[in-house]
């Protein structure tokens, strides 16, 4: 096993330990062991994760975004960083992590078991040397992280709303943050994701104009990106202008996220880079 794999393995173990600690704490009902058994493996894992990404970037001299391994590793990294940003003023070990960390862990696991490219496809060489590309990739990844968090917050909102309506209380009632908190996290994440998506598409257009125009014209991924942007524009508009709230807004976020995630995943499966 070479050193890069060890780093990724360390990342996986760190995240798994943090998740395990979170589950056990919630299971026992209280934080019995303090927050360090949670924060330490998480931060350690994030450190190893970051080093791995930097190494991958330095090896080929470009953003680590080409192989499946790199895409998943970068995506997991963006999600975790954004999650920690959201949690910065909240309790570290709360139930939101129970939704986010499994996804992060899953992505890192996918990265761990898939193999990286040994050789770079010739036609991508030029594109990857463009200075705007890291920006574009960074914005897109953060947009994805924002929309994912918005989606998870909306999911938590709906689950909790259902319990409050049914008046049968269990785990959710005891541990979920309030409806208002779920709504706030969802709202801010939506705005953040939309902003990042706008920047991402902007930088993407710059990239398009500079790279071979023929190669990119009519690419379905660009059409999809614009549709996504329009969809979220409408959601943002209704929230800000018409004050859509609660259940309906949450449902919209969930359906929207699932649809775009499905579309982009299938687009990638058919051989396009993100």
């Amino acid at each position: 096993m070479d050193r890069a794999d060890l780093l990724l393995l360390g990342t996986t173990i760190g995240y798994a330990l943090a998740l395990l600690h979170l589950i056990v704490s919630l299971w026992l009902g209280r934080m019995r062991f303090g927050r360090w058994p949670f924060a330490l493996p998480l931060i350690g894992g994030l450190g190893a994760h970051t080093i791995w990404l930097v190494r991958a970037a330095m090896r080929f001299g470009h953003v680590p975004i080409i192989s499946t391994q790199e895409v998943f590793a970068l995506l997991a990294w963006a999600i975790l960083v954004y999650y920690l940003f959201v949690q910065r003023k909240r309790r570290w070990t709360d139930v939101l992590g129970l939704f986010v960390l499994p996804i992060v862990l899953l992505f890192v696991l996918v990265a761990l078991v898939s193999t990286g490219f040994k050789l770079l496809p010739q036609e991508l060489e030029d594109l990857l040397r463009m200075p705007a590309l890291p920006l574009h990739i960074g914005f897109m990844m953060l947009a994805y992280a924002g929309f994912l968090l918005a989606f998870l917050a909306a999911l938590m909102y709906l689950l909790q709303e259902r319990e409050l309506k049914r008046k049968r209380f269990g785990f959710i009632y005891r541990y979920f943050p309030s409806l208002s908190t779920c709504e706030t996290i969802g709202h801010r994440s939506l705005l953040f994701g939309f902003l990042m998506l706008t920047f991402g598409i902007g930088t993407g257009i710059i990239l398009l104009r500079r790279s071979d125009p023929v190669f990119w014209r009519g690419d379905p991924i660009i059409v999809l990106a614009l549709i996504t942007w329009l969809f979220y524009l409408i959601v943002v508009h209704y929230r800000l202008a018409a004050g859509w709230r609660g259940r309906r807004a949450a449902l919209l976020l969930i359906v929207g996220f699932l649809a775009t995630a499905a579309v982009f995943t299938s687009a990638r499966l058919f051989g396009h880079i993100l």
């Binding site: 009902g29 005891r174 309030s178 208002s180």
Partner: peptide, 23 residues
């Protein structure tokens, strides 16, 4: 243990529910 958690009077349950909705 959770022996001291969760509201056990009608009024405090109302407050707890309000917090669950409005924080």
């Amino acid at each position: 243990t959770a022996v001291g958690t969760m509201a056990v009077s009608v009024s405090s349950v109302a407050v707890e529910l309000a917090r669950k909705i409005f924080e």
